[in-house]
Design a protein around this nucleic acid. Structure first.
Length: 107
DNA sequence: CCCATGACTGAAG
DNA sequence: TCTTCAGCCATGG
């Protein structure tokens, strides 16, 4: 704190806007921020989001709907469990109804 | 200032 | 269809 969050703050803000039971991709957030090609930065920001429990990082997955970041959670099954708890159907680390629950940070 | 890393994406072979 | 490469940009050493 007392330092400019910059990119991170933006990502956090968008991540918090993700509705319940919905998910989005790193690229979608990056695009919303104006840097569609910096999807890596989004993931990087999410890594720092561990310091901010207000950021539902478990609702952020890659474009394929795969839970690529589950390894960064406290438990490998934590991310999937959280999503399933919100009504998200996951199979083999992949969101089945990803297309149906995909949310774009523009609405 | 230079180099390495990272929860991604898209194109090319 | 699957694998591999390069681009992207911020953070840390």
């Amino acid at each position: 704190m007392s330092k400019e969050e910059g990119y991170f703050d933006k990502v956090y803000k968008v991540a918090r806007k993700i509705p319940y039971g919905r998910v989005t991709s790193y690229g979608a957030i990056a695009k919303y921020l104006g840097a569609a090609k910096s999807a890596r930065m989004v993931g990087w920001a999410m890594n720092a989001s561990h310091n901010d429990d207000t950021v539902p990082a478990h609702r952020v997955v890659n474009k394929q709907g795969l839970l690529t970041g589950k390894h960064h959670f406290d438990g490998i099954n934590l991310m999937q469990q959280l999503l399933e708890s919100e009504g998200v159907i996951i199979e083999n680390n992949k969101i089945v109804n990803f297309d149906s629950i995909f949310w774009i940070p523009n609405e």
